[in-house]
């Protein structure tokens, strides 16, 4: 099976978080808890439900990832963008240089 990891948004600020191998929610996918079989996936799912129940996170979901040479690569673009943030230069730039005219 494809391997799965658990991700969610933090309740207080909506920040994207992943469920770490240490049982803590973290802001990067590094050190995430990886499910390589059904049983482990079920455990992660339960952890997600528990965390939603405990009002730590919302929208907890298992997502499919591939292990690409030690780096976790989500199969869906949506999840890759959740890791990278918007793919555009979204924060305001400094004022453009004054017109050359």
């Amino acid at each position: 099976m494809t391997i799965k990891v658990l991700t969610a948004n933090r309740l207080t600020d909506g920040e994207v978080v992943w469920y770490g191998a240490d049982g803590q929610w973290r802001e990067t996918i590094e050190g995430v808890s990886i499910a390589r079989d059904q049983e482990a996936a079920a455990e992660l799912e339960a952890a997600g439900k528990a965390a939603m129940g405990a009002n730590l996170v919302v929208d907890a979901n298992l997502i499919d990832v591939e292990d690409r040479g030690g780096e976790l690569y989500p199969l869906r673009l949506r999840e890759r963008i959740r890791i990278s943030g918007p793919t555009i230069d979204f924060e305001p730039r400094r004022k453009p240089a004054a017109s050359a005219a």
Binding site: D13, G14, E15, V16, R78, P86
Partner: peptide, 14 residues
């Protein structure tokens, strides 16, 4: 309740 007040949850944040 949040939706009635214009608050969505998007990919990266509210």
């Amino acid at each position: 309740l949040r939706l009635m007040n214009g608050v969505y949850l998007q990919l990266h944040a509210y």
